[in-house]
Write a protein that binds this DNA or RNA. Structure first.
Lengths: 234, 234
DNA sequence: CGTCGCCTTGATGATCGTCAATACGCGTGG
DNA sequence: CCACGCGTATTGACGATCATCAAGGCGACG
């Protein structure tokens, strides 16, 4: 484990926080010894400023990524040029890994939504590794499974819940689970949260003001909840 | 290959059509020899009439399924008891396979939407197999990947397109690709199509009548398209 | 203190869900 | 082959929800 840590620091300029994030991803958290080393050797680190394109729809899919810090927006365009977010990736999230065996071209656009550091994995190299090392294949499966479940939940959430309900749900997932008052801080701009929930930014604002009567106060990025239990009733 | 076919017929009462469907699923299409035999030995066939529950949200996930004939509706309920379809599974589709490594309980309800025949795979048995046989792990990955891509497309479709656009898209996926007139027959009730597209049945009807001015005629389950190319412009 | 960018608020319209009534298709039985 | 009846589909009316456009406020940062 010593040498892997060294390798990561020296060869790929991973700082401690980024390395910790990377090690907790479904892809790497279960790997040990040789598998981990081989996986890390296919990786490189990419740092980008805000609003930079990572890949575009239709391009050849030669890599997938894991967010180490910052945020990434996956989105698509319709014919009129309107953008719709499909997914917001936070530190620890992996994206485009479904193209390991699901196709050869990216199906959507990816863009940073903040200054962002990414781990870049070469698609073909991981494909080969997954065929050799059982635990890597298993890690891929775990990652895909979790990802699929959250995406299906996203569909259900979109189709079942109104804007205030989606916002309440989001707040609840970020709250300590007890029933009293709570305070959380958004890790990103409201713009991003809106996209995550499938809303226009204005609709998010209105949802927040609807939730005021349920004891939710918003000031900047800080959200105060009077009674967590009351929020569950929405 | 002879003995596998025999085994399937005698032990599991698979008729020819169902067997052909099963062999084309991402799970089985790439398997050969021993892997295929072992996979088939974890399978059993289930036949259900219309509107029967396959599993409910929160139940222990002890199996996943592949649709051989008929249709299955995956849906969730909100607090008011309103149902929203998450996915409609057609012959050849696999569902709940994401729970192989994604959790121990079903995340939604599954119900037949017609008289339906299913292949039932024991979750733990396939988990064990995937750890032993490389090509089974790979088959799982392929299935999950494709499934994840279509689900992400579903999110994008919901967020980007209006009801008539979604219907037009659906028709186009079912059309021979040339540009002239075409005629297709829906493989199921419009109720199901509405759920697939995230619409109420009435909204589907209205979308069809909006599309009349683009040369789309609907009579029963038969849809006539005057000009496929014109439909793409929607 | 000023500027810029993000967020909020208001007004408006499009879209879609819901409820209710009617029409149609399809399978059944005569 | 035709008439009947049930369930599905359509249509209308209405309201709720949400996107869009435009304008104003707030906060961050120089």
């Amino acid at each position: 484990m010593e040498e892997t840590a060294d390798m990561m620091n020296s060869n790929f300029k991973l700082n401690n926080r980024d390395r910790a994030v990377l090690m907790k991803t479904p892809f790497l958290t279960s790997l040990t010894g040789n598998s981990l080393v081989r996986m890390m050797s296919t990786m490189s680190v990419v740092s980008l400023t805000n609003r930079k394109s990572i890949f575009r729809e239709g391009e050849d899919a030669d890599a997938f990524y894991c967010v180490l810090s910052g945020y990434v927006r996956l989105y698509q365009l319709n014919r009129d040029g309107r953008e719709a977010d499909i997914r917001i990736c936070s530190p620890g999230d992996t994206f485009a890994e479904c193209l390991l065996y699901g196709g050869t071209k990216y199906h959507h656009h990816a863009q940073t939504a903040e200054a962002t550091t990414l781990a870049r994995f070469d698609m073909q190299a991981v494909r080969d590794l997954a065929e050799q090392e059982r635990d890597i294949a298993k890690a891929v499966i775990t990652s895909l499974s979790k990802h699929l479940i959250t995406t299906m939940d996203c569909v259900a959430n979109d189709r079942l819940h109104t804007a205030p309900q989606r916002v309440a749900n989001y707040i609840l997932t970020r709250c300590p689970v007890d029933g009293g008052p709570a305070s959380i801080r958004l890790p990103f701009q409201k713009n991003l949260l809106a996209g995550m929930l499938g809303l226009a930014p204005e609709a998010l604002s209105r949802a927040f003001s609807t939730l005021r009567r349920t004891g939710v106060t918003v000031r900047g990025r800080v959200i105060q909840v009077g009674d967590v239990q009351a929020l569950r009733e929405i």
